[in-house]
């Protein structure tokens, strides 16, 4: 048993290292990827400043208990990085293997598919972690974010639980690319819709009721609300315990659903002989 776990861990690590090696080969692209999220958040912040004529919004304070729009939006925005991890980095990993012509070799390795998926997840998490850290450091320096330092450790705990649920979503998207091949449209459409219902730059209260209900099925909703609750005291409408409980349920649901869809599509594409089709 121990030998088997060790074997799987080595495969996960090898997958992670392989991804880093490929990424670091294209240094200019790697640097650009680091700067991208930092630049993407700026229009949201500058738009907010233009709307209220400063960085404090009375309306936001009434809705959430905090009026500092810069800290509010920045903390929400870092979760786009985690969503991108699931929808693009993990979701597109199999497509990339197809592009490089190595998918069959990877799938022929003597490890279960989920081990490969965990390897991609490990790399994506580290990569996104690096990007988010850089984003937070620069925004903190430029805009002087003010957060409750005592909330950092519990926030990391929430993010950790949320990531497990997102891995399930990422696995589902990754398998969909085996069927749809050019699956960028699915990732783009899904990420656009998820970004609307996730309370990134606004609280849930401004969304129509049906969107608020849909948002409750997403792990990022609880992740954002709870992290902002810990760091800037956002009112959530439910307790921290409820948030952790719901996140734990979503973890189980998304991971099980992701694994089932992954296994089903994997079996179907191998049966139909279309695994190697580009």
């Amino acid at each position: 048993m121990y030998k088997k776990i060790n074997h799987y861990l080595r495969a996960i690590w090898a997958e992670n290292i392989k991804e880093w090696k490929i990424e670091l080969t294209y240094k200019a692209d790697f640097v650009r990827g680091m700067i991208d999220p930092l630049v993407y958040v700026l229009p949201y912040l500058l738009y907010g400043i233009a709307l209220v004529g400063g960085r404090t919004s009375e309306s936001l304070e009434k809705l959430t208990g905090t009026g500092d729009l810069i800290t509010f939006v920045t903390l929400g925005y870092i979760f786009i990085g985690f969503l991108n991890m699931a929808l693009w980095a993990m979701g597109f990993s199999l497509r990339k293997e197809q592009y490089w012509g190595t998918l069959e070799s990877v799938f022929a390795a003597p490890v279960p598919r989920w081990v490969y998926a965990l390897g991609m997840a490990a790399h994506s998490t580290m990569h996104q972690g690096l990007m988010i850290s850089l984003q937070l450091i620069v925004i903190s320096i430029v805009f002087k974010l003010s957060v409750n330092m005592g909330g950092i450790v519990p926030s990391l705990g929430v993010v950790g639980v949320m990531l497990i649920a997102l891995y399930g979503l990422g696995m589902m998207i990754a398998s969909l690319t085996l069927i749809f091949k050019q699956g960028w449209l699915i990732s783009e459409a899904l990420s656009s819709l998820i970004m609307i219902i996730t309370p990134i730059a606004y609280p849930l209260a401004v969304l129509p009721v049906f969107m608020q209900k849909a948002a409750m099925a997403l792990p990022t909703t609880y992740g954002i609300l709870t992290v902002r609750h810990f760091l800037i005291g956002e009112k959530m409408g439910f307790s921290v315990g409820t948030s952790f409980l719901r996140l734990a349920i979503l973890c189980v649901l998304w991971v099980v659903f992701g694994l089932i869809v992954f296994a089903f599509i994997d079996k179907r594409t191998r049966r139909s002989g279309t695994l190697a089709h580009y």
Binding site: L51, G53, E58, S59, M195, V206
Partner: peptide, 23 residues
Amino acid sequence: LIWVIPYLFQGKALVGGMSSAPF
């Protein structure tokens, strides 16, 4: 058009309506 919807909700949250004098 869908990509701008988050900006509309952000505006609603920050100014509490559909118009803004500072804007």
